[in-house]
């Protein structure tokens, strides 16, 4: 994994690396937005249910958690 800056900041003058960067950033943003409609929808629904039923929603059950290093 690398940070947003490492992945998407481009200091090269040539146009092709910048086009490549723009394309990969568009794909990244599209994935981020898609996540709101897919995983996010499940989480919001589960959250509403938990609120209505006055119980606790355990994040570890729904979201991959923990360190990777």
């Amino acid at each position: 994994m690398s940070s947003f800056e490492t992945r998407f900041y481009c200091t090269e003058r040539a146009i092709w690396p910048r086009i490549q960067r723009n394309l990969s950033l568009v794909v990244w943003i599209a994935k981020v937005i898609l996540a709101w409609f897919t995983q996010g929808r499940r989480l919001r629904k589960a959250g509403r249910h938990a609120l209505r039923e006055k119980r606790v929603l355990y994040l570890d059950d729904l979201i991959d958690s923990g360190k990777d290093d």
């Binding site: 994994m1 690398s2 940070s3 992945r7 979201i63 958690s65 360190k67 990777d68 290093d69």
Partner: peptide, 10 residues
């Protein structure tokens, strides 16, 4: 930042 998965990432 996405550089590593954080303990509180969930």
């Amino acid at each position: 930042s996405g550089a590593r998965k954080l303990e509180w990432s969930a």
